[in-house]
Amino acid sequence: MTWSMLFFVLVGAVSLAAAAGVVLSRQPVHSALFLLTNFATLAVLYVTLEAQFLAAAQVIIYAGGIVILILFVIMLIGGETNDFVARQRSWTRGVALGLGILLLASLSYSVFQGFNQPPADVTAIQGGIPEAVGQALFTQYLLPFELASILLLVALLGALVLGRHGTVAHTGSQPASPPPSSDD
């Protein structure tokens, strides 16, 4: 077993454990922290996969942005903890587990059966440094990139509208005349 393999196995094990932790934790806060761990290990794996820019982006966007957002929401809403056993549809647990195993088995089988050739020349991707990725993004993928920025803008506005206090649910049933006072 080479060192790189050992490293992969260790990081992969941590990643899987964190993933299991996300699913199995009772407290949402714990889940969020396990998720953070999972994201971090994935960032490490990205480095080993010649994707340095994405590893950094992973840490910044997921760990730094999304997980923090989730933690904020948990603090806002307060985590309901006792949700693990869904009695009225308890049968779904077994079914879901069975389906997950089935999916995993199918995918593993296909990987082992049809995927054993060695990697191609990795010099082309230049280690996934920001320069290389940026070159691709701003030349060949300029249009999707701009579209992604529009998507983010829309999501921003959508989140703003949804998050506004109290008015969203009622606009549909309000009469056409403007309300007498608008102090919200």
Binding site: T92, L102, S106, L107
Partner: peptide, 16 residues
């Protein structure tokens, strides 16, 4: 769940 069942069935069809 029903979506997931569909996905699994599709994957199994593609694989096997």
């Amino acid at each position: 769940l029903s979506i997931f069942v569909g996905v699994v069935v599709l994957v199994m069809y593609l694989v096997f």
